[in-house]
Design a binder for these strands. Structure first.
Length: 482
DNA sequence: ATGTCC
């Protein structure tokens, strides 16, 4: 196949290529066809990102697509000593990520469409999805959440046997707590504190969702699945959300200082939307500190929503309904990690860390198998539970974060009809994927036609030997915001 | 993504 990009070379492996861009090397983990579908703009963006000083590594996952300043699907690595931090690479929704809970229900128990509707209503009663709506967790101190993450929540929101055993990992639910210089919190003005406090326990819009799913195991990895507590036909809960208004304010109130620092140091690229500062500079430190507060917010917020969904399950299916935590991990963040004994500063923008079996950074309950890597599909299509492969170290243990958009929100609204969307959700059939919105036009820009085929993305991740499929999760019902 | 133009 002929390519129109000037850096095209025939790869020896159809699932990986190294591209020798003027500013440095870009590593692409995607099947040829997916790579060619990305277009040249993603290469221009990579070339800009590679101009940030001291960058050691940059790659794209197969779901990579154009974002602001940096593509979604980017892994970018610096040394911790002479590194840079880039708000543009972390992205606008700091701490955005996934959470999965396992229930003791089987999908056959949700066969009645009326029961799925009842469950969706019970979730909506506890998690407002409208824009500007306030959450139901006013007894929580925002400052505690920002400073301590999950550890800042009152004990009643962390029920016994709700989270896995104690473990040490930044992204593990139980120990999720990002330490930072709390002085930086004073940068955020009072109205944002007020708004963010009200937003605790709210979902947000765009691609955020709460989905009820049915699990099917990949036979090859059945032992891993079973050790994680997965069963065929088991009902799971998947939550996708981020740091809401707080993360946006972090970007807003630390961004101008980052830009000033760039100017002072004479740094920049042809893209004014690509901003960065030395990790050791005052602006870099301020941004990093505030970014960590947003990570704390995002993890605690997903936890609170999971707590609310747990209540909804108990109301719908009785007190014996269980919803234990499988895992929670982010796909928009930057933090220090050790790779091959060296301290590095790793950015992931729309990429998911997937550690393999035996890796020391796995939380203890997942040390032997590798931790679950949670990959959402598009609405109406399956999501995946993955586990990192040993070869994943080639990409700093980063894999995709989902299907990846294939057309813009506006283009989707032009192209896709409500009827086509309804058909893909099987609306009106006994096996319909129940959606909380009665009028699908409100979320038409999130229809599956807006996204790449997640199965092909997963195929690339598996064949690039970054991760393996442990289970596939078929949607039964979905709650979307606006 | 975002109180998406208080």
């Amino acid at each position: 196949m002929q390519s129109n990009n000037p850096y095209f070379t025939q790869p020896t492996n159809p699932y990986y290529r190294r591209i020798d861009l003027p500013a440095g090397d870009l590593h692409v983990f995607a099947h040829d066809e997916l790579f060619h579908a990305m277009g040249n703009k993603v290469l221009e963006m990579a070339n800009n990102n590679l101009q940030i000083p001291h960058i050691r590594y940059m790659s794209y996952t197969p779901d990579a697509h154009v974002g602001v300043g940096t593509c979604i699907g980017t892994t970018a690595v610096w040394g911790a000593e002479d590194g840079f931090v880039s708000p543009s690479i972390v992205g606008s929704d700091i701490g955005c990520g996934m959470r999965v809970h396992l229930t003791n229900l089987q999908a056959s128990e949700l066969q009645d469409v009326k029961l799925r509707r009842k469950l969706v209503k019970a979730i909506e009663k506890r998690i407002p999805v409208e824009n500007h709506a306030r959450g139901y967790f006013s007894d929580i101190r925002l400052e505690d959440v920002l400073r301590k993450g999950l550890h800042g929540l009152p004990g009643k929101y962390v029920p016994d046997a709700y989270t896995p055993r104690k473990a040490t990992s930044l992204t593990h639910v139980e120990s999720s707590r990002f330490h930072f210089d709390e002085e930086a919190l004073n940068r955020i003005p009072e109205p944002v504190w007020h708004r963010s406090h009200r937003q605790l326990g709210t979902l947000g819009g765009g691609n955020h969702f709460i989905e009820i799913q049915a699990i099917s195991l990949n036979e090859e990895n059945r032992p891993i699945a079973e050790s994680w507590g997965l069963r065929d036909g088991q009902v799971a809960i998947m939550i996708h959300s981020g740091s809401r208004a707080w993360g946006g304010a972090v970007n807003q109130y630390s961004g101008s200082e980052v830009v000033k620092t760039m100017h002072r140091l004479g740094l920049g690229t042809s893209d004014p939307k690509l901003v960065f500062a030395p990790l050791g500079s005052e602006a870099g430190q301020t941004y990093a500190n505030l970014m960590y507060s947003a990570l704390n917010f995002a993890v605690a917020n997903r936890h609170l929503m999971a707590f609310a969904v747990r209540d909804a399950f108990k109301e719908t299916f009785g007190a014996q309904a269980e919803t234990r935590t499988l895992y929670d991990l982010m796909h928009n963040y930057a933090c220090e990690e050790e790779h091959d004994g060296e301290a590095l500063f790793v950015h992931r923008k729309g990429t998911t860390r997937a550690l393999p079996a035996g890796h020391a950074d796995n939380p203890e309950p997942y040390r032997e198998t590798g931790h679950p890597a949670l990959i959402p599909g598009s609405m109406g299509t399956s999501s995946y539970l993955m586990v990192g492969a040993q070869d994943g170290g080639r990409n700093y243990h980063s894999i995709c974060h989902g299907a990846g958009r294939v057309r813009s929100r506006n283009a989707t609204k032009q192209l896709v009809t409500v009827d086509e969307f309804a058909a893909s959700m099987r609306i009106g059939r006994e096996d319909e994927i129940v959606v909380n919105h009665r009028g699908l036009e409100a979320i038409l820009d999130e229809s599956p036609q807006a996204y790449k085929d997640v199965d092909r993305i997963i195929d690339s991740v598996v064949n690039a030997r970054l991760a393996d499929v442990v289970a596939k999760c078929r949607p039964l019902a979905v709650v979307k915001g606006v």
